[in-house]
Design a protein around this nucleic acid. Structure first.
Lengths: 202, 202
DNA sequence: TCGTTCATGTAACGCGTTACATGATTGC
DNA sequence: GCAATCATGTAACGCGTTACATGAACGA
């Protein structure tokens, strides 16, 4: 077996849930819709697609003017392979959506998770948001403690760096608070996030 | 050969420049002074130390007695190996400091770079800061373009995510502007960013 | 004496990239 | 016809982690 990726698997399943696509297109979407944060390469994508097919979560479909991609490939003509999410694939995606990971799976890949909130039920959204918030706050506590211990020993640049780092984390916590709040005041539908205007405290 | 790490190498050389240390101690420093951002494990550290010794950039010392008061403050333990930066190591570090990398070496590891600004000359600091700023602005341009192209097709959560991402980047650009400004108004010395005072090195 | 922290190290794996190889389609 | 882009794929490497193994000293 190979490539039990995690993020990539999740993202692929999520994108294909909206509509079938071939690999090339898929990669472009990964780098625009989601990919402001993450940029995957073909070297990751194609092997991943293969294993997903092997698991039965995706099905290959012939491209537009060919019947069987493999057969046409042998006859010297390259057709694109369009991937479609199977019923099992849908289940799998659902499972991954719900999964409030045992590890830091939600931490590094929070962005990707968030990108699929439109597909997610409200209570899972809440769980993910609150989970991230609490981890960030934990981290913040550590930073503060560490800073209190070593403040005098650090030079000014290091100090400024830490200050800026903490500020960023604090800012994200506030952002999460807003999101959680706006989830809480009843938006059952998968749309309409907080508010259009980005006002943030300074 | 193994482990031509980059960041880790840089960080180790930089920390050892201040004072000799053994691996265990080194790792702790990596996870406090710098390590709010990066946390290295022994599995990376020890092999790295070995190759640095092979290159002649570090020298191993028996590490018991009182030649150096700081490194041996807790002496009496197991035969730990204290690493000291050689003259060649100092050169190497200098070289890495100056190196305005051909790749994204400055991008992912900007934090670590910044942490050693105290050791860095003002013009190099400027180059690094401006380099990062321009890369962030470039990225910002891409995000804006991509957003303009696909705005209608994205659901609200994705949109909010991108908005927040851009805001963060914009914020960092402003931070960099302040830093650059404060470098520009004549701080020839190796220290004294925004607030605080004091001088540690050079 | 027994668990914890200190201290050093290795092997295997994870997750992804770059570089390479191949061929088809489009546009000038 | 020839370059650029579309499209798929593999092999090798990069950079780091976790899990494991070892052992000395400290504290209760």
């Amino acid at each position: 077996m190979s490539r039990r990726s995690g993020v990539l698997e999740f993202a692929v399943l999520g994108l294909l849930r909206e509509s079938p696509m071939h690999g090339y297109e898929l990669r472009k979407r990964l780098n625009t819709s989601l990919g402001v944060f993450r940029a995957f390469s073909y070297g990751s994508l194609y092997p991943c697609l293969k294993t997903l097919v092997q698991h039965g979560w995706l099905a290959e479909e012939p491209g537009s003017d060919a019947e069987d991609p493999r057969a046409t490939a042998l006859s010297g003509r390259r057709a694109r392979i369009v991937y479609r999410l199977t019923a099992e694939g849908k289940e799998r995606f659902e499972e991954l959506l719900t999964q409030t990971g045992p590890d830091a799976w939600e931490d590094d890949n929070f962005g990707v998770r968030f990108a699929f909130f439109g597909q997610t039920s409200r209570d899972v959204r809440m769980r993910v948001l609150e989970g991230r918030r609490s981890r960030l706050e934990e981290r913040l506590a550590k930073m503060r403690a560490s800073l209190a211990r070593t403040r005098e020993k650090l030079d000014d640049y290091t100090l400024e760096l830490q200050r800026h780092g903490m500020e960023s984390v604090e800012r994200e916590v506030r952002w999460l608070n807003e999101l959680i709040e706006s989830e809480r005041e009843g938006r059952e539908r998968g749309t309409s996030p907080p508010d259009g205007s980005g006002d943030t405290t300074s």
